[in-house]
Design a protein around this nucleic acid. Structure first.
Length: 346
DNA sequence: AGCAATGATTGGAG
DNA sequence: CTCCAATCATTGCT
C-alpha cells in the first residue's frame, strides 16, 4: 500500500509530460493500421517508466512543471476527468453504503458498560457502580478484592486508550499523507474530490478493522478479568459468625413466614454488613435447604428458638413487652415449626 | 483427597 | 420482579 502513490506519481509524469507520442495517440483515437508504430510508442513509454526512478528529483520537478505549463494541458485534463468520472461512477455507487457494524457496536457497548471506553471511572460505569455497591457492604476483604479488580481494569483501560490513540494518530497521519499526495497529483492527474474521499474511506475502514481487533481483545481481557474477580462463586467468603447468627435468628423467629420484607432485608443487610441481595440469597438458600431436610435443622431451630425466647423474656422483664415479632410463633412452637412455603406474604 | 456446608448463579414459574 | 429448585464453585473440616 505504501508504494502505490509513488507508482501513480511516476507513471503519470512519464505519460503526459515525457512523451508527446501519447498525446498524439489520444488525438487520433482509433489508432488503426500502424500497429507497428504504436508498439514502438508503448515500448518507449514502458522504457521511460522503467527509468523513471533513475531520474533526479529536479528533473522530475522540471517535467512536472513543463506538463503543467503545456498549452494542451487544461483541455486534456478535462477530458480525462470526464472519462474518469464516468467510469468511476459506473464502477462504484453500488457498493458505497456499508451497514453499521453490529459486532463493532456490541463491542463498543460492552467496553462502555465495563468502564473501559467511557468517561474516567467516576460513577458512570456499571462496573464501578457494581463494585462500589458490593464493596459498600464494608467487608475489608471485599474492598481489597475490588481494588485489585479496579487496578487491573484501569490497566486494561490504559493500554486500550494508548493503543487506540496510537491507531488514531497513525490513521490520521496516513490519511493526511495520502490526501496530500492525491491533492498534489490532482493537479496533473484527474482525481476528483470524491475519489480522495473514497480513498480516505478505505483507509479508515482498514484502520477501523485494526481497531476492531483491539476492541475485541480488550473485551476478552475484561471478560477474563471479570470471571476471575467478580464471579463471586470463585471468591466466595463465608459470612462471619455474627452475621449468620443474626440471619438465623430472624429465620427461626419467622419460621412460619420466613420472607423478610424489603425493609427487613435492608435492616438485616446493614446488621450483617452484607448486601440486600446477599440477604435474599441467604434466605432463599435457607428456606430451600430447611424445607428439604427439616430434621437436620431441628437442633438449630431449637437452639435459635430458645435464644429468641430468652431475649424476649429478657426484654419483657426489662421494659415494656414491645418485642413481638410479626409472627410470634417462635416462643413455644419451635418443637414443631410449621414451615409452609405457600403461606408467604409479598 | 474427600466430604459437607455454603454463598452465588441460572432457568423456569407465577 | 420474587421465589424455587437445581446446580456450581469455593470454603473449611476430617
Amino acid at each position: 500500500m505504501d508504494d502505490q502513490p509513488r507508482l501513480m506519481h511516476s507513471s503519470h509524469g512519464v505519460g503526459m509530460a515525457g512523451h508527446p507520442g501519447l498525446a498524439q495517440h489520444m488525438q487520433d483515437g482509433t489508432g488503426g493500421a500502424d500497429g507497428e508504430g504504436r508498439k514502438q510508442d508503448i515500448g518507449d513509454i514502458l522504457q521511460q517508466i522503467m527509468t523513471i526512478t533513475d531520474q533526479s528529483l529536479d528533473e522530475a520537478q522540471a517535467r512536472k512543471h513543463a506538463l503543467n505549463c503545456h498549452r494542451m494541458k487544461p483541455a486534456l485534463f478535462n477530458v480525462l476527468c470526464e472519462i474518469k468520472e464516468k467510469t468511476v461512477l459506473s464502477i462504484r455507487g453500488a457498493q458505497e453504503e456499508e451497514p453499521p457494524d453490529a459486532q463493532l457496536m456490541r463491542l463498543d457497548n460492552m467496553l462502555l458498560a465495563e468502564g473501559v471506553s467511557g468517561p474516567e471511572k467516576g460513577g458512570g460505569s456499571a462496573a464501578a457502580a457494581a463494585a462500589a455497591a458490593a464493596a459498600g457492604g464494608g467487608g475489608s476483604d471485599n474492598s481489597v478484592e475490588h481494588s485489585d479488580y479496579r487496578a487491573k481494569l484501569s490497566q486494561i483501560r490504559q493500554i486500550y486508550h494508548t493503543e487506540l490513540e496510537k491507531y488514531e494518530q497513525a490513521c490520521n497521519e496516513f490519511t493526511t499523507h495520502v490526501m496530500n499526495l492525491l491533492r498534489e497529483q490532482s493537479r496533473t492527474r484527474p482525481i476528483s474530490p470524491k475519489e480522495i474521499e473514497r480513498m480516505v474511506g478505505i483507509i479508515h475502514r482498514k484502520f477501523s478493522s485494526i481497531q476492531m481487533q483491539l476492541k475485541q481483545s480488550t473485551c476478552e481481557a475484561v471478560m477474563i478479568l471479570r470471571s476471575r474477580f467478580l464471579d463471586a462463586r470463585r471468591k466466595r467468603r463465608n459470612f462471619n459468625k455474627q452475621a449468620t447468627e443474626i440471619l438465623n435468628e430472624y429465620f427461626y423467629s419467622h419460621l412460619s413466614n420466613p420472607y423478610p420484607s424489603e425493609e427487613a432485608k435492608e435492616e438485616l443487610g446493614k446488621k450483617c454488613s452484607i448486601t440486600v441481595s446477599q440477604v435474599s440469597n441467604w434466605f432463599g438458600n435457607k428456606r430451600i435447604r430447611y424445607k428439604k431436610n427439616i430434621g437436620k435443622f431441628q437442633e438449630e431451630a431449637n437452639m435459635y428458638a430458645a435464644k429468641t425466647a430468652a431475649t424476649a423474656t429478657n426484654v419483657s422483664t426489662h421494659g415494656s413487652q414491645a418485642n413481638s415479632p410479626s409472627t410470634p410463633n417462635s416462643a413455644g412452637g419451635y418443637s414443631s415449626p410449621c414451615y409452609q412455603s405457600d403461606r408467604r406474604i409479598q
